[in-house]
Design a protein around this nucleic acid. Structure first.
Lengths: 190, 190
DNA sequence: TTGACAACTTACTGACTAGTAAGTAAAATC
DNA sequence: GATTTTACTTACTAGTCAGTAAGTTGTCAA
């Protein structure tokens, strides 16, 4: 037994990466195991089912996001800076070998993933939209953002376009994603 | 042999539906065969590989789209009517048991689908954006649309948000998709 | 009426899937 | 120093996957 430092976290990292790369139906325990140099059963020891593994990935992502937005390094930013911080999450995914957001990856195959995982994805998506909505309302009140209609609807539009934009970039190139971000800003900033 | 009228088209219809419902990695020949009441090998007779089947679905979609946009019933519409026609394609998908656009479904698992299929998806996406871009430029010239920046970028934003919006609706409900469409219009119409 | 062909079925293959049960060795705990 | 626990491995199962080869049957053209 070669003791690997924190296998559980290493597995989660790899699973997250594979989810964003190939989708839930596009990776297997064997992929993870071979990449880590262990046997399939070792993965099952830590995460008994694929459903449990998927849920753990999304749960960790949700926790991480809540930590970020409640940390003063994000909390105390101006609306403009918050917007850039949020965009950068997605820009970094694109830069990291064309990854796609967890939410988009799993919603695209929503009807072929386990039920509990569907619930986790929905919860994460809701939390992302809630934060975006609040941030947009703040910015409009502060006079740095300009848009008509409900902040919730504008939040839904912006997140959808980032989600779709990352996917588009896979087929049509990174520039297309940058174009989307640029246009969001053109439509939002005063 | 019970002769089924135009099996090839029936298979294609079912494959398209499954692609939009479960994703490329989420359906199998067995799903199609059992639904049609035939054996797996019957599907392979018409489409020897899954790659060929996927490509045929996308190719047909591309042809259909070109027929539509070159038909006078769409060609002669005003920019406003063209916009609504395009939105309705996506609204109808959402209404049809939460389907998602072909492009989005396959770009989300882009790195785990066959190479030739990737090419077909890219071609389709490009054609959709080209038409959108031209339509937006026409509308702005005619004074019925209002947006800053390049029509190509606005087209990329709008398509991405429809693509992401359909996916979001699976987790968060149809209303969320309607919100996105409403917001696109608010941001575009004068 | 015969022969060709289209549209299948039967029967199979080898690879891969998630998941399990039992065994093992090192490390932590008592 | 003995016992328990952690983190695996070995060896397996039952099911599914795409794909193939060979045989069958109804239809149609010559």
């Amino acid at each position: 037994m070669v003791k690997i430092e924190n296998s559980k976290r290493t597995i989660l990292n790899l699973a997250e990466s594979l989810l964003q790369d190939k989708g839930f139906n596009g990776f297997s325990y064997a992929h993870i195991a071979s990449e880590l140099g262990v046997k399939n059963a070792a993965i099952h020891y830590h995460y008994p089912t694929k459903e449990a593994l998927g849920c753990a990935v999304v749960k960790r992502y949700r926790d991480r996001f809540q930590l970020w937005i409640n940390n003063s390094r994000v909390k105390d930013l101006s609306p403009n800076e918050k917007l850039d911080w949020f965009f950068n999450i997605y820009t970094d995914m694109r830069a990291d070998k064309g990854k796609v957001c967890l939410v988009g990856s799993m919603e695209a195959e929503f009807n072929s993933i386990p039920e509990e995982l569907q619930g986790e994805v929905a919860a994460l998506h809701k939390e992302l939209l809630d934060w975006l909505q609040t941030m947009l309302a703040e910015g409009r009140d502060a006079g740095v953002f300009n848009f008509n209609g409900e902040p919730a609807n504008k939040a839904a539009l912006i997140h959808s376009s980032l989600q779709g934009g990352l996917q588009m970039a896979r087929a049509l190139g990174t520039k297309k994603f940058r174009d989307v971000v640029e246009q969001i800003k053109l439509d939002l900033l005063v």
